[in-house]
Amino acid sequence: MRLKRWIFTAITLIATVGLFFSATSITEAATVNQGSQEQYLSETDPLSSEYGVENGSAEINGEQYSQSVAMRADKSSVPFGDAEYNLGRKWHSFDATIGLRDDSPRDAALKFEVFADGEKLHEERMMVGESSEIALKVSGKLRLTLKVSYDASEDIDAYCYGVWGNARLSNP
Rank of each mutant, 00 (worst) to 15 (best):
M1N: 10
M1D: 07
R5K: 12
I7C: 11
T9Y: 05
I11R: 07
I11L: 05
I11C: 10
T12M: 12
T12Y: 06
T12C: 14
L13C: 13
L13H: 10
A15I: 13
L19A: 09
S22H: 02
T24K: 12
T24I: 11
S25P: 00
S25V: 06
I26N: 04
I26Q: 05
T27M: 12
E28Y: 08
E28D: 08
A29M: 09
A30N: 14
V32T: 12
V32N: 04
N33H: 14
N33V: 14
Q37S: 15
E43C: 00
T44R: 13
D45S: 14
D45W: 08
D45I: 08
P46I: 00
S49R: 08
S49T: 15
E50R: 09
V53S: 02
V53M: 01
E54C: 04
E54D: 11
E54A: 11
E59K: 09
N61M: 08
G62N: 11
G62L: 03
E63K: 12
Q64A: 05
S66N: 08
S66V: 06
S68Y: 06
R72M: 06
A73S: 10
K75T: 06
S77N: 15
S77T: 09
F80R: 02
G81A: 01
G81E: 05
D82R: 03
A83I: 06
E84T: 15
Y85N: 04
N86F: 07
N86A: 14
N86S: 12
G88K: 04
K90F: 03
K90W: 07
W91P: 11
H92C: 07
S93G: 14
F94E: 00
F94D: 03
D95V: 02
D95W: 00
A96I: 06
A96P: 00
T97E: 01
T97Q: 04
T97F: 05
T97K: 04
I98A: 05
I98V: 13
L100I: 01
L100Q: 03
R101C: 03
S104A: 15
P105I: 03
P105G: 05
R106D: 14
D107P: 01
D107N: 13
D107K: 13
A108S: 10
A108C: 02
A108T: 03
A108H: 10
A109L: 07
K111I: 06
F112S: 10
F112T: 07
F112V: 11
V114K: 04
F115P: 02
A116D: 06
A116H: 04
D117E: 08
D117N: 15
G118W: 14
G118H: 09
E119P: 05
K120C: 02
L121S: 08
H122G: 01
H122I: 00
E123W: 01
E124N: 12
R125H: 15
R125E: 11
R125S: 14
V128T: 15
G129F: 12
S132Y: 11
S132T: 15
E133I: 08
E133Y: 10
V138M: 09
K141H: 10
K141G: 00
L142M: 13
L142F: 09
R143M: 03
T145D: 12
L146A: 09
L146V: 11
V148Q: 15
S149K: 14
Y150E: 15
Y150M: 08
Y150L: 05
S153H: 10
E154C: 07
D155M: 06
I156H: 10
D157G: 13
A158G: 09
Y159S: 15
C160F: 00
C160Y: 01
Y161D: 13
G162M: 11
V163M: 02
W164M: 13
